[in-house]
Design a binder for these strands. Structure first.
Lengths: 229, 229
DNA sequence: TAGTGGTCTAGACCACTAT
DNA sequence: TAGTGGTCTAGACCACTAA
């Protein structure tokens, strides 16, 4: 082997040794200082390489206890959650949307309690249908906290989704992915049979302690979220 | 504000300025050297903070062009793909599984071409049902390349899933998430009505250029994959 | 308490790219 | 070509924790 040069080479060499089982799962590998001496580089360079591997779940590091090869290498899949318009355009399709409903109302208890809202709190309720090449692509059911919004809501040229992303920051959020049978409303909007299997993303976000938005995205059948590992 | 101390404080301060719109989306923020001077720290410390934010999708950095606030902050959701047993046990339920079928066969053309297999290649086909608290939880349909396997397959005490994770390394992989209506086989195995909406994970992995495995995991209705953002 | 990883510094050189 | 981020170094101190 040629001597590792940068931290990426060191990372690759460590990975090789793990895959070749020179270092077995659960075993302690040499310290940063020892590896730095072996590779003829500074300890900080080794640290960078090992930290990346720990972040990726391949190694487990603890002060004083040393660095071990993870026994259950939890693979981390990273999903990019982007603006719907960009998602559609990224597939080479044209994007459009239509605002279906807009009202002020009290959200269902499930949503209110999940967001941590006081009872009786009023939220802005928006429903939007998004199209890819003119076909229904995604049905969006969103509840928005008016308190955290600037006074001016977006004009008709910008979807709420996109406007939110560019305008309202948030500090914490949860996402869940699931499958659901299309209800009456979703089925009608997406032009699919009732009961069709829909891919559903639900997201809740907060700005500090204040709830910002809760949204449920129901994708038309055939949608697939992909990523590399 | 108290002066930032470590890179995490600097990261927090930069985030604050973005959320307060001191630095608007799309705008170029000061250089590392300038920020280091302002915060009274080394440039490497600023670099660490800004690099983390760039990795999180909040900033976009390019040499010579400087650092900008991302206009479309692509939120990255990180999912932990772990061993099924740990997933079940992590929910406080007891885990068990049953191997339903095991044979050597030619995979469907879709799978073969996706993996890059030669025509006529034989793979090991395994179907497994996983239980949580005795209830069907997940139906697993797996194709395995025997060439990349050591001679000894796992005994009945270890699920193929778990054994694979601990034994066969892989260098590249793809994951996709989707929703599907339960087919006849899945419905029977999971004890749900045919056509029920199932959450489906499909994964393909390679070791170098050699295909390792292709697997489809169909979760019983109600399953939800969660993560923080 | 001692050993290990986490971080910081001051300085340097390099890689990329807007101009 | 010059300006900016990316990385490396050698050394230092600190935070955590196993023994």
């Amino acid at each position: 082997m040629t001597a590792p040069q940068g931290w990426e080479d060191i990372r690759a060499e460590v990975l090789r040794r793990i895959e070749r089982r020179d270092w077995a799962p659960g075993a302690v590998i040499p310290t940063e200082a020892e590896l730095a001496a072996e590779f003829g580089c500074a300890r900080a360079t080794v640290n960078r390489a090992l930290s990346e591997l720990a972040r990726a779940g391949v190694l487990e590091r603890r002060r004083r206890a040393g660095t071990r090869v993870a026994t259950h290498p939890v693979r981390k899949a990273t999903l990019d959650i982007s603006v719907i318009r960009l998602e559609v355009e990224g597939r080479g399709q044209s994007y459009s949307f239509r605002l279906l409903g807009r009202s002020e109302a009290e959200p269902p208890p499930v949503i209110a309690s999940h967001l941590g809202l006081a009872e009786g709190a009023q939220l802005l309720h928006l429903t939007t249908l998004h199209f890819a090449d003119g076909q229904p692509f995604l049905y969006e059911d969103r509840w928005l906290n008016p308190d955290v919004l600037p006074e001016d809501l977006p004009g008709p040229e910008l979807s709420v989704n996109e406007w939110l992303v560019k305008t309202v920051a948030y500090t914490a959020g949860e996402i869940s992915f699931s499958a659901a049978s299309a209800g009456t409303e979703e089925a009608r909007r997406l032009a699919v049979p009732e009961g069709a299997a829909l891919f559903v993303i639900e997201r809740a976000t907060w700005l500090g302690a204040a709830p910002v938005t809760w949204v449920r995205l129901s994708y038309a059948p055939g949608y697939r979220l992909r990523t590399a590992v």
